[in-house]
Amino acid sequence: MVVPPAAPEQGRQQMALTALAPKRTNPAKRTGPAKGTGALRRRVADNLMAYAFMAAGLLCFAFFSWWPLIKGIVLSFQQDNFVIPPYFVGLENYRALFDDPLFWTAWKNTVVFTALALVFGFALPFVIAILLNEFRHLTGLFRVLVYLPVMLPPVVSVLLWRYFYDPGNGLFNTILGGLHLPPSQWTQGSSTAMISLVLVSTWANMGGATLMYLAALQGIPGELYEAAELDGASVWQRIRHVTIPQMRFIMLVLLLLQIIATMQVFIEPFLLTGTSSPDTVTVMVLIYRYAFTVNNDFGLAAAMSVLLFVVLGAFSALYLRLTRSAD
């Protein structure tokens, strides 16, 4: 017996019941938003941890750098000697600075020291780096010897040279006596005091600049020197037409950094000649003199610091401009 096929009416009834039945939710789709929420929470937690570490660093930087800077600017408009409560005096501290003859002497000595330090501390490391670059044996030993003064504490270096400059039994006067030459006053003489400070600063700091120059020299392609030699260029011509153009940027950056550093010289004149010598008083020494020795006027010292900050800020802005343009 053959079973007849379902009637069209029964098929339509089944389709209607299927349409009216409630739709079941897919479990996989139901867990999707939960997973997305968890990932979002993890990202927020990671970012909060990163922001927490960054906030801690910013707070330390603000407390130890920004707040003293702001406090110093405010103090420059106040009269304060830590005896009476500070009070505002407007631009009186700046007027007193410009009326002080020692203010102009300090700036003149600072500019002279910076110029002499650049002559020795900028050119001499470049020459030493070229010589070290030509060595093929014991290069590591020579680099350590050049960089060794940088590893010494600055006070130790200055005290060592203080013994060398001693007018009585110092090393330099002993050598002059052995050569039957008259002794020199070195740091006490008006004509030799500044150059004596420059020699100490150059010896103590030229190691870092020398290694930077040496690293830049080793980055110059050797093919350029080979082409120059084939053209018959001399040593000076190779330095002038190959080395210096290839190192122009690093030389300019180091020049600006040395200007910023040498204009803040303090340890050498403070330990070798003191704060009372007009031949070696610099801006930083005068700031110390205003605050702690003669005037005990922290407002006047703060005003001097603000002026130095403005000058160094201009050189720093130039440095950032050059490095940004190089990138």
Rank of each mutant, 00 (worst) to 15 (best):
A39H: 08
L40F: 08
L40I: 12
L40H: 09
L40Y: 09
L40P: 04
R41A: 15
R41N: 13
R41P: 04
R41S: 13
R42K: 13
R42A: 15
R42M: 12
R43T: 15
R43C: 09
V44N: 12
V44D: 11
A45W: 04
A45V: 10
D46C: 13
D46T: 15
D46I: 13
N47D: 13
N47G: 15
L48K: 08
L48W: 05
M49T: 12
Y51H: 13
Y51Q: 12
Y51P: 03
Y51G: 13
Y51F: 10
A52F: 07
F53R: 00
F53Y: 08
M54V: 11
M54F: 09
M54W: 07
M54P: 07
A55S: 09
A55N: 03
A56W: 06
G57E: 04
G57I: 03
L58V: 06
L58E: 01
L59S: 02
L59K: 02
L59Y: 01
L59W: 01
F61H: 07
A62H: 04
A62E: 01
F63N: 04
F64G: 06
S65K: 14
W66A: 14
W66C: 10
W67L: 14
P68F: 02
P68W: 01
L69Q: 08
I70W: 10
K71G: 10
K71T: 12
K71M: 12
K71Y: 15
G72M: 11
G72F: 02
I73K: 05
V74A: 13
L75S: 02
S76I: 01
S76K: 00
S76R: 00
F77R: 04
Q79C: 04
Q79L: 10
D80K: 01
D80E: 10
D80M: 00
